[in-house]
């Protein structure tokens, strides 16, 4: 078993070590958890041409490119630790956050928090020089008193009204404390706005509905970001020297009604009290995949200030509003 690393002092030796770490980040293998998800597969496809990619996911990787090494194991198992012991591993990208609100809170919590804690333990023990966590702008939560653009240092109040995402907030917090405790690892937390594309998340599923229900009298401004822009942000975060928290936003914000109109879908405005009662019933009868508290996302603003990502990360969205929105209708064969 390896010893805990001692904190390094800023000496020439440290600088040399930094150089070595940078080389390791740039040239080493990237472990991607949750690689079998739609976003994970997209990232893997872009990344594997340039560097070694190791997948770590409980699921099977369907249509895996030949040069990707994939391990269908649970992160919590001992075998996963063996993987991180390898000296060639330069970075860990954690995409394996589970977002299935149907699964019980307990299962959710165990998987998300315990698994991430294990991962942090491996990263610390084997001094992996780079850690990227894909969090979400939802951790700030849609609230009536939100500033129009929330900056990275704002409190994470997302679970106030929507308790199901408290494990995502816990993950974000764990990564933050890890950032301060382990200066030897460059920790990056990405908090993207609503990711649209072939992914199976709530905003994409919502915009894919044949008739889009909205709340009568509410029409908040929204930020959407294309899945490939998020993949690009992850790749930018993998560069040596980048650390910290970054909000990721796509094209300029748009009113919900306008976004739906651009997609050419009819809307169905429903009064909030009715919508809430209705969605609660449908949820109980397993007829919808949207829990009722998620209605707040189409009621209040939850937008992020991405100036830091633009300045430090060098990120800027490549996809304009139209193509970002239309991405939800793309063929989902990848």
């Amino acid at each position: 078993m390896a010893k805990r690393p001692t904190p390094k002092k800023p000496t020439p030796a440290r600088r040399a070590a930094d150089g070595a770490a940078a080389a390791r980040i740039e040239g080493g293998a990237v472990v991607v958890t949750g690689i079998c998800g739609r976003l994970g597969r997209r990232l893997a496809r872009q990344l594997h041409r340039e560097r070694t990619v190791i997948g770590l996911d409980r699921r099977e990787f369907v249509g895996k490119p030949k040069d990707i090494e994939h391990h269908s194991i649970d992160v919590r198992r001992k075998k996963a630790r063996e993987l991180f012991r390898r000296p060639d591993i330069g970075a860990l990208v954690h995409l394996g956050v589970m977002h299935d609100p149907r699964l019980g809170a307990e299962e959710h919590h165990t998987w998300n928090v315990i698994a991430f804690q294990k991962l942090l333990e491996y990263v610390e023990r084997y001094q992996i020089p780079k850690l990227v966590l894909l969090s979400s702008a939802n951790v700030y939560g849609p609230r009536p008193d939100n500033p129009q653009f929330i900056s990275e240092d704002a409190p994470l109040l997302g679970a106030n009204r929507f308790s199901d995402i408290r494990d995502l907030i816990e993950l974000d917090m764990l990564a933050q404390s890890f950032f301060w405790r382990n200066p030897g690892t460059e920790t990056v937390i990405l908090r993207p706005a609503h990711i649209l594309g072939t992914v199976q998340n709530a905003p994409s599923n919502y915009l894919r509905l044949k008739v889009v229900p909205t709340l009568l009298g509410f029409d908040p401004m929204m930020q959407v970001v294309h899945q490939d822009d998020v993949v690009r942000a992850v790749r930018l975060a993998l560069r040596p020297g980048v650390r910290g928290i970054f909000n990721i936003a796509g094209p300029p914000p748009v009113a919900l009604s306008r976004a739906v109109k651009l997609l050419g879908r009819p809307t169905l405005p429903i009064p909030h009290a009715m919508a809430r009662a209705g969605v609660e019933r449908l949820w109980r009868w397993h007829m919808t995949s949207f829990p009722a508290p998620e209605l707040d996302f189409i009621r209040y603003v939850c937008m992020v200030d991405d100036r830091r990502a633009r300045a430090v990360l060098g990120y800027g969205p490549k996809f304009d509003l139209g193509s970002t929105l239309r991405a939800v209708d793309e063929e989902r064969w990848v």
Binding site: P144, D145, Q148, F149, G217, D219, H272
Partner: peptide
């Protein structure tokens, strides 16, 4: 801030350029 919780009012304020009263 509470005006944001009212239907129509919140949308109207935002369309005519009024914003929620926070320093940011």
């Amino acid at each position: 801030k509470w005006s944001q919780t009212l239907p129509f009012v919140s949308t109207f304020f935002s369309r005519v350029g009024q914003v929620v009263g926070v320093p940011e």
